[in-house]
Design a protein around this nucleic acid. Structure first.
Length: 133
DNA sequence: GCCAACGTTGGC
DNA sequence: GCCAACGTTGGC
């Protein structure tokens, strides 16, 4: 089982909306690294849901429920999306500042490559974030 | 609202 | 194949 982190602008699609929708398709990824990460996702993998922009914090956990398939919103190119389902809301969101302040998390791509929207996360990092929440 | 970092595009 | 120019993302 693998762990991931996906970012979304709360204005575009927030974790609250996912909670309401129960599940959603993650369309619109137009970055090769992010796409390649989605291709590696397996059913049952867990995803940290991160709010970028004004929020800047991990707010909840989602689960991969459908592996990569064609992104029907893409007019051209070789793009895929996955489906994720609501899993749980963190009692206390873990902010970017908290992540940066934690030495165990200093290698996370959230810190080293802030622009990547779909990132791989180590189990130890995933567990650490949940512990902080 | 600004700007740094990164990715992509296109001219050579 | 290199690299300058441009666009986008996302933190501040």
């Amino acid at each position: 089982m693998n762990y991931w982190l996906m970012k979304s602008e709360p204005h575009t699609y927030s974790f609250d909306e996912l909670k309401k929708d129960k599940k959603t398709y993650w369309d619109g990824v137009r970055n090769y690294q992010a796409r390649n990460n989605m291709r590696k996702m397996k059913k049952g993998d867990l995803v940290l849901f991160y709010h970028s922009g004004k929020d800047r914090q991990v707010v909840g956990v989602a689960k991969v429920v459908k592996e990569a398939y064609d992104d029907f919103t893409a007019k051209e190119g070789d793009w895929q999306m996955v489906d994720i389902a609501y899993q749980k809301t963190l009692k206390n969101p873990v902010s970017l500042a908290d992540v940066k302040a934690n030495k165990k998390l200093s290698k996370m791509q959230l810190v080293t490559n802030s622009r990547l929207s779909v990132q791989e996360v180590k189990k130890s990092e995933f567990d650490e974030i949940l512990k902080m929440s």
